[in-house]
């Protein structure tokens, strides 16, 4: 995800100091991965250089936190275009698990075990997200659900592959 565009989007609601911006980002989108201050200031200086934000006011004293940043017209245009452009759907064709299963079959190892262990690991994470969701607000629920649906898709694939393991073994060895 583009941090620059996300910060721009947050600035659209009003000018902010770098520190406020970081806090707003972490609160809404950071979750497990809060931004580093360094990241915030390097991103802001890039946005400044590209004319997407401007410094609206500088308070007395030194340090980067004295500056208030505001979005420019060009910045608003960039945010608008970003929101209007669909994200590229992931084809998910590079699949480590498929590779592992094939290698297990080729080497005569227990391929079903590879799938079972993965199912268990997936379910463990799904439980954690489900707990978090149950105790969370709507934002938490939506974010966890997104992750849960993806993990569920993986699990469905695991089940299907488990059911077709014998067939796959035959094709691979022929």
């Amino acid at each position: 995800m583009s941090i620059g565009l996300t910060l721009l989007g947050l600035l659209e609601t009003g000018p902010r100091h770098g520190y406020d911006l970081k806090r707003a980002y972490d609160e809404r989108f950071g979750h497990d991965r809060p931004l580093h201050y360094g990241q915030v200031y390097s991103t802001l200086s890039r946005l400044l250089r590209d004319g997407l934000v401007e410094v609206e006011g500088v308070e007395a004293g030194g340090g980067p936190d004295r500056k208030r940043y505001a979005i420019t017209g060009a910045g608003v245009t960039d945010v608008h275009e970003w929101l209007a452009t669909p994200e590229k759907p992931e084809p998910y064709l590079q699949n480590t698990l498929y590779t592992k299963v094939v290698l297990a079959l080729l080497s005569g190892r227990a391929a079903a075990e590879v799938l079972d262990v993965q199912r268990s690991a997936h379910l463990r994470l799904m439980r954690e997200l489900t707990r978090r969701k149950s105790g969370g607000d709507l934002a938490d629920q939506l974010i966890c659900d997104h992750a849960l649906f993806h993990l569920e898709a993986d699990l469905r694939w695991l089940e299907l592959t488990t059911a077709r393991l014998n067939q796959l073994a035959k094709e691979i060895r022929s």
Binding site: D116, S120, H122, L123, R124, R127, T130, L148, F149, L155
Partner: peptide, 26 residues
């Protein structure tokens, strides 16, 4: 259940295959 998101409400899972059950220990 065969639905992973429903199974995620459990504390642990047991998998049944061809009439045999097993628990995967991680």
């Amino acid at each position: 259940t065969h639905e992973p998101r429903v199974a995620a409400y459990s504390d642990r899972e047991v998998v049944v295959r061809d009439g045999k059950s097993r628990e995967v220990e991680l």
